[in-house]
Design a protein around this nucleic acid. Sequence first.
DNA 1: TATGAATGAGAATTCATTCAT
DNA 2: AATGAATGAATTCTCATTCAT
Lengths: 218, 218, 218, 218
Amino acid sequence: MTKDTARKSPLSKRGIRTRQALVDAARVIFERDGYLDARLSDITAEAKCATGTFYTYFLDKSEIFAAVMEATKNEMLHPGMEHVDGVEDPAAIIESSNRAYLERYRSNAKLMQLLEQVSSIDPQVRELRRARGWVFVERNARGIKDLQDRGLADPDVDPVMASRVLSGMVSRLAFATFVLKDGGDFEQLVYTASRLWCNALRIEHQLTMPQAVEKSDG
Amino acid sequence: MTKDTARKSPLSKRGIRTRQALVDAARVIFERDGYLDARLSDITAEAKCATGTFYTYFLDKSEIFAAVMEATKNEMLHPGMEHVDGVEDPAAIIESSNRAYLERYRSNAKLMQLLEQVSSIDPQVRELRRARGWVFVERNARGIKDLQDRGLADPDVDPVMASRVLSGMVSRLAFATFVLKDGGDFEQLVYTASRLWCNALRIEHQLTMPQAVEKSDG
Amino acid sequence: MTKDTARKSPLSKRGIRTRQALVDAARVIFERDGYLDARLSDITAEAKCATGTFYTYFLDKSEIFAAVMEATKNEMLHPGMEHVDGVEDPAAIIESSNRAYLERYRSNAKLMQLLEQVSSIDPQVRELRRARGWVFVERNARGIKDLQDRGLADPDVDPVMASRVLSGMVSRLAFATFVLKDGGDFEQLVYTASRLWCNALRIEHQLTMPQAVEKSDG
Amino acid sequence: MTKDTARKSPLSKRGIRTRQALVDAARVIFERDGYLDARLSDITAEAKCATGTFYTYFLDKSEIFAAVMEATKNEMLHPGMEHVDGVEDPAAIIESSNRAYLERYRSNAKLMQLLEQVSSIDPQVRELRRARGWVFVERNARGIKDLQDRGLADPDVDPVMASRVLSGMVSRLAFATFVLKDGGDFEQLVYTASRLWCNALRIEHQLTMPQAVEKSDG
DNA sequence: TATGAATGAGAATTCATTCAT
DNA sequence: AATGAATGAATTCTCATTCAT
């Protein structure tokens, strides 16, 4: 699912450079124009190579998109509560995970919007994304289970389903805030998401509302 | 929101019939092929009229899509906690709202997926949807405020932001479940969403896990 | 195999006219440039219509070629000895059939060359042509059988196989003469083909060499 | 006919090996894909060399095709009546020539089909083939003339034209049988072709139908 | 000689939109 | 109002050929 995406593995250094230039160019063009309006000729122009060169490395637009996704997968995080296992203050970890996630999302909003768009268009991308998401859902579920076992979280929810619900909650919030531009003070966002997350699982916490922020905004 | 959707207000009975046939056909084709792959000629074929007739009623694909949305707006709900104001058991209302929402979503999954797709493509639709969503966010925020004022909900969250977060949580859950087909027992879904919602706001409740369902499933 | 070749049966008179213009244009372009070098844009230019119009009637080049073949099938004869049944002088009929065939072939040499070319490229056309050829092979075989039964032809050959061999003999001669331009006096050609045909089947004849023709030429 | 086929006369042993690998590969690819669909890159891949290497030895596809033809010319025979001069039983020679020709044709059907295809596409190849064919036509014509002079063949046909007609007859039969797959028992084929050939020239013979074969088949 | 990445001209094809009937 | 044939702009994709290494 990773290797045979490319038409050829470029062997020479030059080939590697060209392929990389195309992937970089594709990201620029996709973020600028969206997936649908991106023309391959714009990508090759941006990469300063001939149109035909595109086909040395990729079969079509969807394939170079996959390569862009592969190249940026580290920028595409998922909301989580990593490392709560056996830690004293789960709330602090949840808050810091949420802050980290929202920050990453904010810096990569264009990319996330792009991923959203392509997911809504291309079933393969949709499925890939879903599969990747599940890794995080399950990781979070293990954290929840651990807290339940230690008597630190509401035992009356299924950990996997709770994980799905809460992961979705934060990712949806990030989407609405940074892609749809629903706005809202960043610290307030982190605080609300984290507080509701902890409350939802009945995790004890001392989270307090960040000061000097008005009650709401449009 | 209704007026300039139609190119002309069709006056004759025949005109009304033809227009309606086109809108109905468009929904069929859009749900079958998606927005992008739907050809106007497929829509007119489905409506059993000539291609040219399309332009008697609509300017382009986005306009007939708007008409489909208008015609189906009653099927497109938003998650909420309707009418909690001054009611005895807010948890019951939250649960029943969630159940109702998830049921509607399930029946209209194709349509919701379509809306998702077009939102990711067409900024106008995206904005329209966002605006409609806010109506519900604010309605829910009023409910939360009311509970907070009556001492029945966590006072340390901004009602609007909490509303955004929780509405998003349920709509994202519905999307993942019914569009991405993440699966999960329906009652378990309703229960988890409702319990987490109540917990999140520290609303007292007696929600209990539906029986005979294992802890997790794929 | 004849009807659903066309993308749409044009209903209007205008449609019939346009389709016909395209088929006529295609024949001109195919005969001028050959099948491979014929560009669809040349065909539409010749037909004085837009490139897109082509696709109203045909799916691709092979389909309009089929339409050209269909339109010209009366010009594409096969060599034969029709109507020898019960006739006094079979040789006269064989000679006149051969003359007719060779004349038709000469007038349609371009078309026959085209058919040869496409047959060598497109298995469907090859098969169609083969199937059409068999009709004539079998018809001739019945003529041979009749002569054998009446004691007028060599009984020691299988009529069908003899028919294949003799039909091929004349069609190959026509091809070599008019397409490959092997040359040769026309009457000499008719005479030789007919004499050898009759001799081959031991049919009695009074065929005589046309006068005033040198023995051979390049 | 040999000289300007090669771009350069490869002198080094390595060069000879590479060139030969390319020609062998080309035959494989041409027979597999046909002339038109054969890509030079497929040929070089089959020959296990780089695309650029092709141009060290050949100018273009038509040139390597010529090299393939040159390399296989011994497999490309023409129908004939070899060495009839002064031999006792011309019929036996005709029959054995026909058998040999049809056998060779059967073993090289792919190659013959390829030659047919390229002849229909490339005028140069067509001309080359026509020229080669004439050598055989003329050789056969001399054989016929000899029989006529000895009173063993119908004197009332032009030997060259008869030769053309009869050579074409057998080559066309072979093509229809082995390329178009018209079928037919092999011995029956040899017998019919030979008997009709002898009859056509009024050459005396004792050819008898091969036993145990029904009158006709598909 | 061999390599294989880069080149780019050129043709097919789609389908929203127009418009004469 | 309805019809449906005609339009043509716009892009993708192929692959023979070149050329720097």
